[in-house]
């Protein structure tokens, strides 16, 4: 669609949001992520691409410690959010995840009303003092997720009754309702049809004004369309990390080139 306008937009935010150094991830005996260093910028969309099983999702889940919920997973190395180590003993993953929200591959609205889905995060984190404020957050989040117009008349209807694309935007609204600083998206469009995909991609571009967005995708076109920075993962290694147009037009590593030209993957 509007590839040109997106890629031409200069990367203007230069302050570093997340810094990862020497990150290693083990699943039991398997060494899933090897020695990854990466700097994720604020107010930027960063795409992780690579063949399936390359570790891009695993690394993404390290950024808000979602891997903690898997018993056999161990993470080593250093990941800093605004200069603070998120694997520090003092960090409560619950507090971290309020700052680093996540959207998943398959839309997973809770079996509650649309309103309650969005209000869930603010409620548990105690972000509001009264119902009016909560209403305000719900509306703002749904607006930012480009869903308000479609659902404003049926906020009490179950979230599971929406279409696939609407459900995924509802999940995005749910994630941004806690006003995170970083939004992680794990292949957010892989379960959606092309029209819904286009809507969500457009939304991602707009989210960039408020958040730092990290998106894992298996579609190189999508990475090219929505991101400013791209990281290419292969067999658990971060092979190349650069400006998106640089990666797609002039990759330095032969493996990256093989992948984007379709020879591996």
């Amino acid at each position: 669609m509007n590839d040109m306008t997106l890629t031409e937009r200069a990367v203007n935010a230069t302050d570093c949001k997340i810094t990862a150094r020497n990150v290693q991830v083990y699943y039991g005996e398997t060494h899933a992520i090897k020695d990854v260093d990466v700097d994720i910028l604020d107010k930027t969309v960063t795409a992780f691409i690579g063949p399936s099983g390359c570790g891009k999702s695993t690394f993404l889940r390290c950024l808000n410690r979602m891997n903690d919920t898997i018993d056999i997973c161990r993470v080593k190395g250093e990941i800093l959010l605004d200069g603070e180590d998120i694997y520090d003993k003092r960090v409560d993953p619950v507090q971290l995840r309020a700052k680093v929200g996540m959207v998943f591959q398959k839309p997973n609205p809770f079996p509650k009303s649309i309103y309650d889905n969005v209000a869930y995060g603010p409620k548990i984190h105690g972000l509001t003092r009264n119902r009016a404020e909560l209403d305000e957050i719900v509306e703002a989040s749904l607006r930012k997720a480009a869903l308000w117009g479609e659902v404003k008349d049926r906020l009490q209807a179950p979230g599971t009754g929406l279409s696939g694309g609407q459900q995924q935007r509802l999940c995005i609204a749910r994630a941004i309702a806690t006003s995170p600083e970083v939004l992680l998206m794990d292949e957010p469009c892989s379960a959606l049809d092309p029209i819904a995909t286009a809507q969500v991609e457009e939304l991602i571009d707009e989210l960039r004004t408020n958040f730092s967005v990290v998106i894992v995708t298996h579609s190189m076109q999508q990475a090219a369309r929505v991101s400013q920075k791209t990281a290419f993962f292969h067999l658990g290694n971060l092979v190349e990390y650069d400006e998106t147009d640089q990666i797609f037009t002039n990759p330095t590593d032969p493996r990256t080139e093989s992948y984007i030209t379709g020879r591996i993957g």
Partner: peptide, 28 residues
């Protein structure tokens, strides 16, 4: 659409992750 401001975003002050706030302590 994008000019809708996020009310909570302005209210929550930047807190260090290394300090547990009272609410998190209660929740834990």
């Amino acid at each position: 659409m994008s000019d809708a401001t996020h009310p909570a975003a302005h209210k929550s002050p930047a807190r260090s992750l290394h300090q547990l706030d009272a609410r998190t302590k209660r929740r834990n």
